[in-house]
Design a protein around this nucleic acid. Structure first.
Lengths: 263, 263
DNA sequence: CGATCTGTTGATATCCTTCAATTTTGGTGG
DNA sequence: CCACCAAAATTGAAGGATATCAACAGATCG
């Protein structure tokens, strides 16, 4: 069996542990589903709208996205997939994909057998619960994006996406600093935020001017507090109950600590 | 027990039957969960962001919505809830609501016991599957809305929402014509579509001028085909496999028939 | 070391918002 | 039945946020 992470720090375990306390045995039995890992190049469609739905999968490394393409070729990115995300365990129930999934970077991905997963869930209520909460988090992320596209300015949308990328990386145990580890291009940000690449560029220029971010190999968020103040979003919607003390707290600020994070 | 609909036409049964064939016994065992029905006035919050999540519920009559409120008081409507929708069966797993739910009209609503529902799902795989697909439909509706807010013009957004209301009413067995049975105000449309009420009004004026809709007590869609052509959306994303022959087909047009609806 | 994608900047255009005022509608009580 | 009121719908004028178009610079990679 191919295993790239010690059990304790596998991003899927890190993530699910934020929702439900998992024992080492729980973690092992979940990771036992990861038998074959595929490497896929960047900018490759994993699944295309209209296709028969694929098997459930776990993203182990790299970044992918769900997206739709309009008749005129423009794209709307619906969701970014990060390492540790477990996706689409029920999707096989449908006849046809209603959206597409593509890699953005080179990725490592494990497909998960339908029977094995459902049997594990049936026999392990903690894992089952963790996966349900994880699905609720996904839904909440999409809701928050909908609020952004509907009612927030371009500045707020960009600030929100940057914060969310860091929050989610922390949730999945991928980052202990405030850098966007897997950089997404300005075109991708634009397609996710309902903006043009040109305008995303201008917003980022202003953020740089105001010392909010710094562009290096990884985009670095210099002032989370102000970025969060700009977008007016707290990480509450990610429902990370069991964050390590003092960590997400330091990112989220005292407001979120008081309101949601039961450390 | 309070029962307003014969089993065959209860909107929840009509809807779930679109996903999985249900026997009369299936229908009865699901409707057996509806023990107490509450009437709630229009414009009342059922659940507010930050609250402890409520029980799962079934909307029996009227219209409600999920929404978020921004710091400056503006509102984003995330989703309209129609009769027959069964909502939030997993939400109890969270510590706090990340959005609010409110009635738009007077509604009849049945809360559904967590234990009873999960026991029914465990013992009835068809109902379990139907509820899973229903959850997938909800997710797909939100994705399609995200595409609208991100990449479609005001005209397209309004046309899409009107089409979707009719499609969903048909899905839930609520309408056999092309009228929006539960009218939503222009303010509500604006809050759902990320527009201002003023602009929604102007779009609707143009639609009326072009004989696409007619405002009566119920908003009437005079030309579904052209409305669908305007928004460039097919009802495929609603995944209504088992529609009655010749019905959704007549709404959806030949394209959707060929591509998705296995009648 | 050219080709191609990504990022950057300026000038102009446009869709939608904002603001303000008026009309229409629907409900309620006299 | 009518008077009244609040909510919803409607219209016009003006302004602003973001898009579009175009050109170029910088990075990345075979």
């Amino acid at each position: 069996m191919h295993r790239r992470f010690p059990t304790e720090i596998h991003p899927a375990i890190a993530k699910l542990s934020k929702f439900v306390p998992l024992s080492d045995r729980d973690a092992e039995s979940l990771l036992a589903l990861v038998t074959t890992v595929h490497q896929i190049q960047e900018h490759v469609d994993i699944s295309v709208q209209g296709d028969l739905p694929h098997a459930a999968f776990m993203l182990i490394d790299g970044v992918a996205c769900r997206y739709c393409v309009l008749e005129d070729g423009r794209r709307q990115i619906l969701h970014f997939l990060l390492p540790g995300d477990i996706c689409d365990s029920d999707l096989y129930l449908l006849d046809a994909m209603d959206h597409s999934i593509a890699t953005l970077t080179r990725v490592s991905i494990a497909s998960i057998g339908r029977e094995e997963l459902s049997s594990l869930r049936a026999h392990n209520p903690r894992i089952d619960t963790a996966l349900r909460v994880s699905a609720l988090q996904d839904a909440a992320i999409q809701r928050e994006r909908l609020v952004s596209l509907g009612r927030r300015s371009a500045r707020q949308r960009v600030a929100h996406l940057l914060c969310e990328m860091v929050w989610r990386q922390v949730c999945n145990g991928l980052a202990d600093d405030l850098t966007v580890r897997y950089p997404i291009t300005q075109v991708e940000m634009a397609d996710a935020l309902g903006l043009t690449p040109v305008h995303v560029n201008r917003v980022l220029r202003d953020f740089r001017r105001d010392r909010l971010v710094r562009a290096s190999r990884r985009l670095e968020l210099l002032d989370m507090k102000r970025l969060q103040a700009i977008c007016e979003v707290t990480p509450d919607y990610l429902h990370m109950k069991r964050s390590r003390p003092g960590f997400v707290r330091s990112i989220a600020g005292p407001k979120a600590e008081k309101r949601n994070l039961r450390v």
